[in-house]
Simulated assay, not measured.
Amino acid sequence: MSTSTVLYDHPGPRARVRNRVLSVVFGVGLVALLWWIYHKFDQAGQWEGWLWKPFTKPTTWTQFILPALGQTLLAATTGMVLSLAFGIVFAVGRLSDHWWLRMPAGVVVEFFRAVPLLIMIFFIFYGVPFLIQGPVSAFWAVVIGLTLYNGSVLAEAFRAGIRSLPGGQSEAAYAVGMRKNQVMRLILVPQAARAMLPVIVSQLVVLLKDTALGYIVAFPELLQRGVNDLAANYGNIVASAIVVAAIFIALNSLITMLAGWLDRRTRQRAFRTPKQTAAPGPTTPGGAAVAEPQG
């Protein structure tokens, strides 16, 4: 009996009818909601051609949207790499056998998870210069804030993934003489990353969207350039917001598709059976192979 049969009972005739009725009701309600939104925007004149005409001009894309998209992707990519590294390091730190590593790592993770990201970016940009006696660029204020917050969340995800693995794997690794850093690096962390991939992807999507908080320090990302500056020039704030939202949806969809492809590829490698090799034949004392007798 398969696991899916145990965990999931196929609906009967009444349940299938009920599911179809609920699907139709939900679909009709969704269409009605979309029509109501369209109608209200139409009454407010938000579908007028002159509001959308700027997006047909190449200068709109080359001066506002594409440069802002580049800055958003650069900040998001840098933040993703640093957040993943931060999460792995502090997850391992929280699982350390030494209290002088485990306790500070826990304090750091809990602190940066509790502080709102907007306040963190604001403090890094305006407060840290008083400590280091030098300015902090808007780009690094956003990236450091994203790293500290999302890295702390990912640290808890990695820690939960590592703790969810069977304890026998660690015991077997210790039995063959592996050290704890080798067990973490070679056995536990790769499996935890694969098991927690949906959570990791969800957090990376949140990180990409959180780049929009860079407007508080005038970071030239999509919200700042693609909505505020563009609407200030053309007076089409709703149209600009819709276009920018569509770009964010497309980017997040690409991240989800990439994560799905990566998950399928890692699973295929994990369950791939090794090729069978021929057993070596008998050899002479000098190492030469003995020919098989002909039948």
Rank of each mutant, 00 (worst) to 15 (best):
4 S>G: 04
9 D>F: 03
9 D>E: 15
9 D>A: 14
13 P>K: 13
14 R>C: 07
16 R>D: 09
18 R>C: 05
19 N>E: 14
22 L>Y: 10
24 V>N: 07
24 V>H: 04
26 F>N: 05
27 G>V: 01
30 L>H: 00
31 V>H: 01
32 A>H: 01
33 L>K: 04
39 H>N: 05
40 K>W: 06
43 Q>A: 11
45 G>C: 10
46 Q>W: 15
48 E>H: 10
53 K>Q: 14
63 Q>T: 12
64 F>N: 13
65 I>W: 10
69 L>D: 14
75 A>S: 08
76 A>L: 12
77 T>W: 07
80 M>T: 07
81 V>I: 14
81 V>E: 05
81 V>F: 11
82 L>P: 01
83 S>I: 01
84 L>F: 02
84 L>S: 05
91 A>I: 09
93 G>T: 09
93 G>V: 13
101 L>N: 02
103 M>Y: 10
106 G>W: 01
107 V>R: 03
110 E>F: 00
111 F>E: 01
112 F>W: 04
119 I>V: 11
121 I>M: 09
122 F>L: 14
123 F>I: 11
126 Y>E: 06
126 Y>V: 06
126 Y>R: 06
127 G>R: 03
128 V>Y: 07
134 G>K: 13
135 P>G: 10
136 V>R: 05
137 S>T: 15
137 S>N: 08
140 W>M: 14
141 A>E: 03
146 L>D: 04
147 T>H: 09
150 N>F: 01
150 N>M: 05
151 G>A: 02
152 S>N: 05
153 V>M: 06
157 A>L: 05
158 F>T: 00
159 R>K: 06
161 G>A: 12
162 I>F: 08
164 S>Y: 12
164 S>K: 04
164 S>E: 12
165 L>Y: 03
165 L>R: 09
166 P>K: 15
170 S>L: 12
171 E>V: 13
171 E>H: 05
175 A>G: 12
176 V>H: 02
185 R>W: 08
188 L>V: 01
192 A>F: 02
193 A>L: 09
197 L>G: 00
205 V>N: 12
206 V>P: 06
206 V>N: 13
207 L>G: 07
211 T>F: 09
213 L>S: 10
217 V>H: 02
218 A>V: 15
220 P>A: 09
221 E>F: 00
223 L>P: 01
226 G>V: 12
229 D>E: 13
230 L>K: 07
231 A>V: 06
231 A>L: 06
232 A>Q: 11
232 A>R: 10
237 I>M: 08
237 I>A: 14
242 I>C: 15
243 V>A: 07
244 V>R: 02
247 I>P: 01
251 L>H: 03
253 S>V: 14
258 L>Q: 02
259 A>S: 13
259 A>R: 00
259 A>F: 03
260 G>W: 03
264 R>S: 11
265 R>Q: 10
266 T>W: 10
269 R>M: 05
269 R>N: 04
269 R>I: 02
272 R>M: 11
273 T>H: 11
275 K>E: 15
277 T>M: 15
277 T>F: 13
277 T>D: 15
278 A>N: 02
281 G>L: 13
284 T>K: 10
285 P>W: 03
286 G>Y: 00
287 G>K: 04
288 A>H: 06
295 G>L: 14
